[in-house]
Write a protein that binds this DNA or RNA. Structure first.
Lengths: 254, 254
DNA sequence: CAGGAAATTGCAAATTTCTGCGGTTTTTTT
DNA sequence: AAAAAAACCGCAGAAATTTGCAATTTCCTG
C-alpha cells in the first residue's frame, strides 16, 4: 500500500498512526517513516508519545493495537484476516447515496471501519458497536435500531427490534451467518437471532451474506432463508475457488 | 488556493478561520497569515481565543477542527472526579427491580460502571456507549432506545427516539444538564437535545438531574422544565454546601 | 467631533518545540 | 559470536510560540 502524505502536523501524524493501527493491528516504524515522509526517529518519538498516553503498545520494530491480543492460536489470526478480506469485499457493494442495513459481529465491525471517509450514505444497524464505529465517519447518517440488548451477541433483539425493522426499507442488507449450505440455505441455531435475521431480510431489497470460507456447507438447526433469497455471497475465498462453484447457480458469488 | 482579504475585523477573521477549518479540518498559522494579510502573531492570538472558547483545537503549527479526533480516543474527561462522585450518589437511588431510563455523557457512563454486579433491574438508555457498559452486568436487562445517532453527543435522537420514548414508562429517569438555575429551571442549548429530554421526562415517574457543582446557576437558551418537575438534584457537593440551599425548597438535594 | 481609554496589532527578543543526524547502545537475526 | 536492524541519546538548526512593548486603531463619551 502506498500512502502519500506531506506537511502533516504532529497531531495529524498521531491520528494517522492510530488509524493505521486500527486497520492493521500493527505498524512498522519503517513503513510509517515512508508514509508520513518523516525520519524514523520522528516516528519513534510519535510512537513513544502515543504509547505513554496508553493509546498503543510499542514494540520493537513498531507498535501494536492496544486491544491486540497475542495470538492464542494460529487459527484466530487467520480468521481475523479472512474476516477483513470479507469486509473489504463487502464494502465495495456500497455506493454513494445508498441505504444499508447491517447486523453485528466482528466482520461487520471490520466493514464499518473500512467505510470510506467521504462516503455519503445511510446505515441502519442493530449493533451499538457497529453504530459507534460508523459514527466516526462524518458523511454517514447512522440509525440505530433499538431493542433489548443481547449480552452475548451485543446486538439489539426482541419484539421491538423486529417491529422497527418491519417499518423500514433499505437497498442492501449485510448479514453474517454460521450456517450456509447448498440445500438448506442460510441456517442459524438461535431462535431470537433467526427472527431478527428474517426481519432484516424482509426490510431489504437485496441481501448480502458475509461469511468466511470455512463456514461453507455447514447446517444449523433452524432455517433463515433459502439460497435463492440471497443476492450476494461474500467470502474470503478467491472467486474461482472450487468450493464456491456450486453456489454460483443460486447467487452472485463475490 | 489564493485568498485575498484586507482590513478584516477580528470577528471576521475568526469567522474566516472557522470556515477554513470546517473546509479543510485544519489550518496552518503561516497560511492564515498570508490569507488574512496579518502577522502570524495576530493569527496565533486569534487561534488562542478560538481555542479557549472551545471552537477549535490549537496545536503546534496551526489548529485542527474540533471534530478532529482519534478513533477510539477517550476524550479527556473534564472534572472526572466530580462526575464520579455524582455517579456514585446517583446509583444509590436505584434499587432491586426498578425500571430506569438514562441519557448519555460521561457521568452516565460512570454510573453504568458503578451498577452493582448483582443488581437485577431494567435499564432503558438512548446511549449505545452506556448500553454496552451496562451489558457487562449479568443481572440487568438493557434496552436501547433507537434513533438517529448523534455524532457529537453519541446518543440517539430524532423523531424515532421521541416516539419510542413516548411509548415507555419507567420509575426513574437520570438526566444530565448544562444549565440549571433557580428561576429558569433546567435549560439546554440544543433544540434536538431539548426534545429528547422532554420526552424522557414524560416517560418517567420520577426525575433525577445529575450535574457537577459548577454548573449550578447557569442558564442556557431553551427551557427543558422547571425545578419543581425535578425530584432529585444530584451533585458532587456536600449536602450542606451553601450553593445548594436555595434549591432545597424545590427538589430533594443529594 | 475632539479627546482619551481600551483594545488591537506588529515587531523583536527570548523561549520552547520539533525534527533530522551522527554516534552509541540494545535487540534481533544469522 | 558476528552482523544487521532498530532504538536511544544528545545536539543543533529550523520553525513556532511566547512575551513585553510601542504604535496604531477602534470605540466611547461628553
Amino acid at each position: 500500500m502506498k500512502i502519500i502524505t506531506t506537511g502533516m502536523l504532529k497531531k495529524e501524524r498521531h491520528a494517522f498512526i492510530i488509524r493505521q493501527i486500527n486497520l492493521h493491528n500493527k505498524v512498522l516504524s519503517s513503513d510509517l517513516g515512508l508514509q508520513l515522509q518523516v525520519s524514523e526517529d520522528t516516528v519513534r518519538r510519535d510512537l513513544n508519545e502515543l504509547s505513554e498516553s496508553g493509546k498503543i503498545i510499542k514494540v520493537h520494530g513498531g507498535a501494536l493495537s492496544k486491544s491486540f491480543h497475542f495470538p492464542y492460536e494460529q487459527k484466530d489470526v487467520y480468521a481475523q484476516d479472512s474476516k477483513k478480506e470479507v469486509a473489504r469485499k463487502a464494502i465495495g457493494l456500497v455506493s454513494e447515496g445508498m441505504t444499508v442495513l447491517t447486523g453485528g459481529g466482528t466482520t461487520m465491525l471490520e466493514m464499518a471501519r473500512l467505510v470510506p471517509d467521504d462516503l455519503e450514505a445511510t446505515f441502519f444497524t442493530i449493533s451499538p458497536v457497529v453504530a459507534l464505529e460508523l459514527s466516526e465517519k462524518k458523511m454517514l447518517t447512522v440509525i440505530l435500531i433499538g431493542g433489548t440488548l443481547n449480552k452475548n451477541a451485543q446486538v439489539n433483539m426482541g419484539s421491538k427490534t423486529i417491529a422497527d425493522l418491519s417499518e423500514i426499507g433499505v437497498d442492501l442488507c449485510f448479514l453474517g451467518t454460521n450456517g450456509i449450505d447448498l440445500k438448506e440455505g442460510i441456517t442459524d441455531s438461535e431462535w431470537e437471532v433467526l427472527q431478527v435475521k428474517k426481519a432484516m431480510i424482509g426490510a431489504s431489497a437485496r441481501i448480502a451474506i458475509m461469511c468466511i470460507g470455512e463456514k461453507l456447507n455447514s447446517v444449523k438447526k433452524m432455517k433463515v432463508c433459502s439460497l435463492n433469497t440471497i443476492d450476494y455471497l461474500i467470502t474470503d475465498l478467491a472467486s474461482n475457488d472450487p468450493k464456491l462453484q456450486s453456489y454460483e447457480a443460486h447467487t452472485k458469488v463475490i
